[in-house]
Amino acid sequence: MLVDNYNRSFPYLRLSITEVCNFSCTYCLPNGYQKDGEKSFLRQDEILRLVNAFVELGVWKIRITGGEPTVRKDFTDIAKMIGDMTEVSKLAFTTNGYKLKENAQKWRDAGLNAINISIDSFNAKKFHDITGHNRMQEVREGIEKAIEVGFEDVKINVVLLKGVNDDELNAYLDYVKDTPVSVRYIELMQTGDNLTYFNKFHLSADHIKDQLIDKGWVENIRSNGAGPAVNFTHADYAGSIGLIAPYSKDFCTGCNRLRVTSTGDLRLCLFGNVGIPLRHMLQSDDQKDDLKAAISKQLDYKASSHFLALGDTGIMTNLSSTGG
């Protein structure tokens, strides 16, 4: 098992397979994806060697991310390749929901069993203003299809934006009244290119937490292998509400995940100051021992916390570049 100097273990890998995204969300890629030279994303054979090494180091949960991972034409093949590994008991992906309704069954059959869908507003106009696409109803239908085909863990990601969608909690509560999904409010995070936007739209997740407590919702104990969300439930609701508050005290004490970018760099933290190249060790099967040793060694350098509160966003330009 991968363990760092603060006795945190890491059974969870977030693997980006592309930086490309077909949405232009205001908080991430307001001008859309801009191609950066002739960047080459990890090939299937490289991904297989990488995942095999992490599995042998104790990883059992993998999330495929982007950009928007489903824009890769071989996304289903990549999912099936990882899904065929019996050691991976939880195989998730994060998506903007584009084409989810049409492909949910195929992706479930490939071995994916958990899904996070970004839907920052249930108001069609706001959704269009945030994402640049008039697809809110289409994405909602995709969520319903994911539930129908048997995804075991369905989550909706909502980036909390002051003055934009901070008044929509009741709409999401109405949705989870009878729908067994988790709506997760994510605090807007400062990145390398969004300081002005961050200062204008950042709002503490306490804005939502205080309302939930007032309405009788109860904070749950964090389960093994879970992500960073603090989860709230209510006896009268089928679904739940989660809060991801990276500026909160002790947010990093429960860190359990590592990240690999779409070009093969290991990131010890979403907001770390260095990326460790692994791609040169993904070219043949006989490099696996060196790869595993390199990954394990890097845990010695994982910091106790990010430094977002000090305005230090590390080397991450935007969320799409690192896998969110």
Results as ranks from 00 to 15, higher is better:
104 A>R: 02
52 N>Q: 10
219 E>S: 05
32 G>P: 14
80 K>T: 12
269 C>S: 08
134 N>R: 02
295 I>F: 08
206 D>M: 05
3 V>G: 03
278 L>H: 06
241 I>P: 14
35 K>D: 13
258 L>I: 13
322 T>K: 01
300 D>Y: 10
288 K>E: 15
265 D>R: 00
230 V>C: 06
311 G>N: 04
302 K>S: 09
168 E>V: 05
290 D>L: 10
319 L>E: 07
31 N>H: 12
171 A>I: 06
178 D>N: 13
204 S>V: 06
2 L>G: 07
188 L>N: 07
157 N>K: 03
41 F>N: 01
122 F>Q: 04
36 D>Y: 14
12 Y>T: 02
181 V>N: 05
43 R>E: 15
221 I>T: 11
235 A>Q: 06
253 T>H: 09
66 G>W: 04
277 P>M: 12
140 R>P: 06
90 K>Y: 11
14 R>C: 00
15 L>D: 00
12 Y>C: 07
64 I>C: 12
153 D>E: 08
55 V>G: 12
316 M>F: 05
185 Y>E: 10
263 T>Y: 08
195 L>F: 13
85 M>K: 10
193 D>F: 08
322 T>W: 04
295 I>E: 12
89 S>E: 13
75 F>R: 00
158 V>E: 08
192 G>M: 09
177 K>Y: 15
237 Y>M: 01
288 K>R: 03
134 N>P: 07
25 C>N: 09
43 R>F: 13
94 T>Q: 03
172 Y>T: 01
9 S>K: 10
12 Y>W: 13
67 G>M: 09
247 Y>P: 05
166 D>R: 02
4 D>R: 00
41 F>D: 03
52 N>H: 14
289 D>G: 02
298 Q>A: 09
79 A>P: 05
21 C>I: 06
197 Y>W: 11
188 L>D: 14
275 G>Q: 04
200 K>T: 15
287 Q>A: 04
125 K>P: 14
217 W>P: 04
162 K>S: 11
64 I>K: 01
111 G>Q: 08
2 L>N: 04
151 F>I: 02
263 T>E: 15
126 K>C: 11
110 A>W: 01
171 A>V: 07
58 G>A: 08
275 G>N: 03
265 D>P: 06
221 I>A: 08
4 D>V: 06
221 I>E: 14
3 V>C: 14
205 A>D: 07
213 I>E: 13
125 K>Q: 15
39 K>E: 15
237 Y>W: 02
252 C>I: 04
103 N>G: 07
237 Y>R: 01
275 G>M: 08
315 I>D: 07
14 R>K: 00
44 Q>I: 13
215 K>F: 08
46 E>M: 01
202 H>R: 05
288 K>F: 11
183 V>S: 03
95 T>Q: 03
83 G>V: 02
24 S>L: 05
31 N>V: 05
58 G>S: 11
10 F>M: 00
111 G>T: 10
324 G>W: 12
275 G>W: 10
21 C>T: 09
195 L>D: 10
